[in-house]
Amino acid sequence: MPSIRMHKKYDSLEPILTITNLTKKFGYLTAVKDLSFTINRGNVYGILGPNGSGKSTTLGIVLNVVNKTAGNFHWFDGNISTHDALKKVGAIIERPNFYPYMSAAQNLKLVCKIKGVDYQKINEKLEIVGLLDRKDSKFRTYSLGMKQRLAIASALLNDPEILILDEPTNGLDPQGIHQIREIIKKIAEKGTTILLASHLLDEVEKVCSHVVVLRKGVKLYAGRVDEMISSHGFFELKSTNETKLIAQLENHKSFSKIISKNNLITAFLNEPMKSEDLNEFLFKQDIILTHLVQRKESLEEQFLKLTDNS
């Protein structure tokens, strides 16, 4: 009878990976500079930054394939060697490397032998990535997206506590990107912690609960995605009496900044407010709005603010 793996409700503050003042230099180039952050259990983390920001170098260090210059990192509670900790980690940091003339199932059997995993896991993991019906097809017949999904299945064979993915959707078409993102969400829902590196803001916003923003190896932000975009947003407004409207907004405690440009007034909130409440308030001040739109700042807008100010 197959064993049933129970997923306990994890304490989200239980650390899986702790990075402290990590630095990596390649000659005169500092790829990672004094980097510190913690990955806690049960979340989906994105390391976000343009190419050359130090994402892959950071992953390489914690996976023991790149030597650090300074600083430290430790897995779990720190009482386990990196070698033993990595047995609980699944990672894809390079393009999948399978035998082209062998089927998906045959390739995964080899991985099972190397990892000491029961062959029973093969079908279970192929089903998660949507490849069970193509398990007997040769790897060379797979599309790029299918190859990437097979790599994820391979990384999941040992039931890792954390799955690490470096640019998992790179080079894929829109359908392939969507499939990988849905698989990541599905794996996370089962309790596996995920750490992915990406240069795509859209990817982090759609998939991740937490984000670490890097630029030139320096951390610009680390925290929850929803807190990064937790500004209360802003209103775009137009009125026939613009001067009176600006005066009312500037004297209102709910607004932090008012910008007037090309007859459009943008009023940034420092606390929550509904558009109907603003409309009612202004109407009572004899101000009639001809345009009222409420918007939230996107992760992209926040990211551009961070990188512009650094």
Rank of each mutant, 00 (worst) to 15 (best):
S3C: 10
D11H: 10
D11V: 14
I16V: 15
T18R: 15
I19H: 13
T20P: 03
L22M: 14
T23W: 05
F26Q: 05
F26S: 07
G27E: 08
Y28D: 09
V32H: 01
V32Y: 08
D34R: 02
S36M: 04
T38N: 09
T38C: 08
R41C: 14
V44A: 04
V44E: 10
Y45Q: 00
L48G: 00
G49I: 08
P50S: 09
N51L: 03
S53C: 11
G54N: 00
S56W: 08
G60L: 13
G60K: 11
I61N: 03
I61S: 10
N64C: 12
A70K: 11
N72A: 15
W75Y: 11
F76S: 09
G78F: 12
G78T: 12
G78R: 14
N79A: 05
N79S: 13
I80Y: 13
I80N: 12
H83S: 15
D84P: 14
P96F: 08
Y101M: 06
A104V: 14
K109I: 05
L110R: 04
Q120M: 02
G130W: 08
L131F: 08
L131K: 03
D136A: 05
S137H: 06
S137N: 04
R140T: 00
L144G: 03
G145P: 00
M146Y: 07
A151P: 05
A155E: 02
P160F: 13
L163M: 07
I164N: 07
T169P: 05
Q179E: 15
I180N: 14
I180E: 14
K186D: 11
K186V: 13
I187M: 15
A188G: 15
E189A: 11
E189N: 09
L196K: 08
V207H: 06
V211H: 04
K216D: 02
K219Y: 09
L220I: 04
Y221G: 09
A222P: 06
A222Y: 03
A222T: 06
G223C: 02
V225R: 02
M228Y: 04
S230Y: 01
H232C: 06
F234D: 01
F235W: 03
S239W: 00
T240D: 06
T243V: 06
K244G: 00
I246E: 01
L249E: 02
E250L: 12
H252P: 09
S254Q: 09
S254N: 08
S254E: 12
S256P: 04
I259R: 12
L264H: 10
T266R: 07
T266E: 06
A267K: 08
L269T: 01
N270S: 10
E271S: 05
P272S: 13
M273C: 10
S275H: 13
E276F: 13
D277H: 15
E280W: 00
T290N: 08
H291A: 07
L292R: 07
Q294I: 02
K296H: 04
L299I: 15
L299E: 13
E300G: 13
F303M: 11
N309C: 13
S310Y: 12
